[in-house]
Design a protein around this nucleic acid. Structure first.
Length: 551
RNA sequence: GGCGGCGUAGCUCAGUUGGUAAGAGCGCUCGACUCAUAAUCGAGAGGUCGGCAGUUCAAGUCUGCCCGCCGCUACCA
């Protein structure tokens, strides 16, 4: 670890729409895993840049704004600040969490557009779209409603019929009407830029099939999609809310399609970060250095955009790093059924934060990360993880060792005597824990990583039971001191092993044992708890949770 | 409809290229201990690996069909 050259690591995380509160599925699916990974890479000395931000131009935002009769900006201004409080509460440690509404983003996106145009990947084409003459706007698919041509359902949306589930083209609707004004929309010609995505079929397939270490479901899904053939996609929309195209040959009112624009945030956010640092070119270390790595943490619904479209955009731009890995997660489901509002997923994050300590919530989610399959969780399951695993195994371990050190040695780290084989084995076990957890996190097996770290805590419990310092304290204080000294070393190392997952409580443990963290993350090595030093006060790490008492 | 995925102990889940008598955590039973947040440690019970049929010397792990569940299906994110 320590002998490796520090690497530049871009930790890129899905951009949430600033359109509604986040739920545990979002946290477990993307934001927590990225934070765990980023914290770990900081610990081993790499230069991590973790960025994301609120997508302010997403269609759901304009839909919601139209429904409420407010501007999209008002929606964004409500939810973006709310997101920031989540990050603070959960200690999601961004280098920058911005929005797609910044000048930097606009500049980068428009530059990207021009570069694609220059490289021959954009062309114009005319098509017919529904236009609401009363509202004076072209209508996105879901703004058109009418009778479903398949089942006769009267309120089918232009993109899909909610009754029979079929995918529709708004032009096929019988008696179409505008959702904006209720009037009958008319077909009107409109000219747009199209992206020559079809040109990337071959290189994309070649790139995808040569990825090593990617999760099977990610590669399979992406390859399957490319195998079906990539088709050219419209690159612009008839919208005012968005980033206008930087050329005027199509007239006004043309914005870059929000999805293409949003993923470019991975490029613009590091530039904004660099500007804030006062080193405007610093972002290039993460984007242009071939040795730099880039990890994209997203949910599985985002695989096409991060494993295909964004890499294709980058290929079209040229000279920028493609993703090192897209460790997409599956879904966190609640109470068996799919993510449903009635079973907890609709609960605001604050509901959980009122009942669980941040690290306790992080623990339960980390143990349930849907890395290879959808994973199911319930409120009781979260409480069970906290009470029967986290408190019982780790919290109690720390507490019992600190208590004995207080009782038998007045809170001073005892001087160890000669180490026996059992002592040596325990000292080695703590190093193995750090090594194993490190291997697992490097491979983005975060769930296995925290389980392994907990095994380390169990090993310390076994060691204590075998050596029984509460018994030896009656006859042999040297032996007792040695045992507690070893146990303290194990705890300190284990706090480091857990630190990516449980940053707040790990910090408390390390401070109490005399190894305060310098910087944002502890060094990934076993700290030395010095004999003779005085332990500072350390209250129990976690409290047990009783949901019934607080509900 | 098309594409993809899932169904492994009571619960939540692991199980690289098919190969020793199928694993973990929690729960449960019994025992040990009492420093510790009735926590800890040990032992044990518990599974036709959704069903059926194949391929193979050998299948949870490959093929086909069936049952149940889910996601995506391109201007929807």
């Amino acid at each position: 670890m320590s002998d490796k050259q520090p690497k530049k690591v871009l930790v890129a995380v899905a951009w949430p729409y600033a359109q509604g509160p986040l739920h545990l599925g979002h946290i477990g699916g993307a934001y927590l895993p990225s934070d765990i990974y980023a914290r770990f890479r900081r610990s081993v000395g790499d230069d991590v840049l973790m960025v994301s931000g609120s997508d302010v131009h997403g269609t759901p935002i304009t839909v919601k704004a139209d429904e409420l009769g407010v501007t999209p900006r008002e929606i964004v201004d409500k939810y973006h600040p709310e997101f920031l409080t989540y990050w603070e509460d959960l200690e999601i440690d961004w280098d920058l969490f911005t929005t797609t509404g910044t000048d930097t983003h606009k500049r980068v996106v428009q530059d990207f557009f021009l570069k694609l145009l220059e490289n021959g990947y954009l062309y114009t084409e005319t098509s017919e779209q529904f236009f609401d003459e009363e509202a004076g706007r072209f209508l996105p698919d879901r703004y058109v409603e009418g009778t479903c041509p398949h089942c006769g359902f009267g309120d089918a949306r232009g993109d899909q019929c909610d009754n029979c589930g079929k995918t529709l083209d708004p032009v096929d609707l019988i008696d179409p009407r505008s959702k904006l004004s209720g009037t009958t929309p008319v077909l009107r010609e409109t000219e747009h830029y199209y992206w020559k995505l079809s040109a990337f079929n071959e290189p994309m397939l070649e790139w995808l099939t040569s990825r090593e270490g990617w999760r099977p479901h990610v590669v399979n899904f992406a390859v399957g999609m490319v195998d079906d053939g990539l088709h050219d996609r419209a690159f612009t929309r008839d919208l005012d809310w968005g980033i206008p195209i930087p050329v005027d040959d199509l007239g006004p009112g043309k914005s870059i399609y929000v999805w293409w624009e949003a993923v470019m945030g991975y490029l613009s956010a590091p530039q904004e970060w660099a500007e804030i640092q006062g080193t405007p070119d610093a972002w290039k270390d993460w984007w242009e250095d071939p040795e730099a790595e880039a990890y994209y943490f997203v949910g599985k619904d985002n695989i096409p955009f991060h494993a295909i479209y964004w890499p294709a955009l980058l290929m079209g731009y040229g000279g920028l790093n493609l993703p090192t890995d897209v460790p997409a997660n599956q879904y966190v489901t609640f109470g068996g059924a799919k993510a449903s509002k009635s079973r907890g997923v609709g609960r605001p994050l604050s509901w959980y934060l009122e009942r669980f300590e941040p690290d306790a919530l992080r623990y339960a989610l980390a143990q349930s990360l849907p890395e290879s399959n959808d994973s199911d969780i319930t409120d009781d399951e979260i409480a069970r993880r906290v009470n029967d695993e986290l408190v019982a195994t780790w919290g109690n371990l720390v507490n019992r060792v600190v208590s004995m050190t207080d009782r038998y040695f007045d809170g001073t780290v005892p001087q160890p005597g000669p180490l026996t084989d059992m002592d040596e084995a325990a000292m080695k076990a703590r190093m193995d824990t750090l090594g194993d957890v490190s291997d697992l996190i490097y491979n983005v097996k975060l769930r296995a990583g925290i389980a392994r770290a907990m095994t380390g805590a169990q090993e310390a419990n076994v060691y204590l039971n075998d050596l029984a310092p509460w018994t030896t304290s009656k006859t042999d204080m040297t032996r007792t001191g040695t045992t507690l000294w070893v146990a303290l070393q194990m705890i300190a190392a284990n706090a480091v092993a857990l630190s990516p997952y449980l940053p707040g409580t790990s910090r408390r443990v390390l401070e109490a044992l005399g190894s305060p963290i310098e910087g944002r993350a502890p060094r990934w090595e076993a700290p030395e708890v010095e004999a003779g030093s005085k332990l500072s006060e350390l209250a129990p790490l976690f409290a047990k949770v009783d949901l019934e008492a607080t509900t």
